[in-house]
Design a binder for these strands. Structure first.
Lengths: 151, 151
DNA sequence: GTAAGATACTCTCATGTGAGACTAAATTCA
DNA sequence: TGAATTTAGTCTCACATGAGAGTATCTTAC
């Protein structure tokens, strides 16, 4: 790939541009699977998925893990609590920061979505062989590391 | 990569999730380069970059190219017009759809941003060798094709 | 050629987001 | 200890976004 630093910018090769486009499409298409069917917003789904994978966390930790604003998380948590999909437990080590975790219903919901998610992704990557996918994930995590370094 | 379709979802490996995170970080970090310095919003920058690369286009075409909502494009175009960064020319083939293009000032602005963008990306991918980058771009475009097929 | 439908764009309105003020709790430092 | 600072979370406000109505123009079908 030759890039002329002076005058030319190829958007297809420019990552902040093309990756944003692709990520938006993915998120949009995948979120159709849970939005109407399970009445979850994107932030709500992200919280549930993180609690399912990583267990008990505080709101702050969820902000950091999923790169969401504290207000967004605060609202999503509030709504998940009223729907009894998550549980808040007092944190013995810090009374400001409740420990959040999935309720039985929340877990059941998550278990319904997981196979849909895995199927969806299997379709998405069906054009790639496993070596290519592995390589792609690897490069992605290098990029992610680089971005986190410079913060 | 082994995935248990029944109960497990690894968010790090789940593309709608991890790609969104990475794309958001990229866009955020890169946009710092043009937001204050050149007083451009993200949609404004995207329009300028597309007009620079692809020449004269209608608002509708910009919507499709950059996956932006028609309202968002309409507002960004309006503002770029009042700032004289772009020019609207009547379209002989369709009086509803003006042909938009960069003005001299718009071009000058773009020429200032391009080297910053290329430098920025060069830093981002500095951990990758050129083969790895090429492969990554290739996989990205396969994913993009797949997403566009299913729309 | 005209009526009916589709399309490009603008505008209005409802909603979600993020910045920043605020409160309560924890930590640091003297 | 006690005072000053930091931190977690909520709330308010300003703003950007996207859905949908409205207008002008173009296309299709009879």
């Amino acid at each position: 790939m030759t890039t002329d630093n002076q005058t030319t910018l190829d958007l297809k090769q420019f990552l902040p541009y093309s990756l944003t486009n692709i990520a938006m499409q993915m998120s949009e298409q995948f979120s159709e699977l849970y939005q109407q069917q399970f009445d979850l917003t994107v932030p709500q789904w992200r919280i549930i998925a993180n609690l399912a994978q990583y267990g008990e966390r505080t709101a702050k930790e969820l902000c950091d893990m999923a790169q969401m604003d504290k207000s967004t998380v605060s609202r999503a948590v509030k709504s998940l609590l009223t729907r009894n999909l998550i549980i808040a437990k007092e944190n013995p080590e810090d009374k400001r920061a409740n420990l959040l975790s999935l309720s039985v219903e929340g877990n059941r919901l998550h278990e319904q979505i997981v196979p849909l998610a895995n199927e969806w992704q299997a379709g998405l990557v069906s054009d790639l062989d496993s070596q290519e996918l592995k390589q792609f994930m690897n490069t992605l995590s290098k990029l992610s590391n680089h971005l986190n370094k410079s913060v």
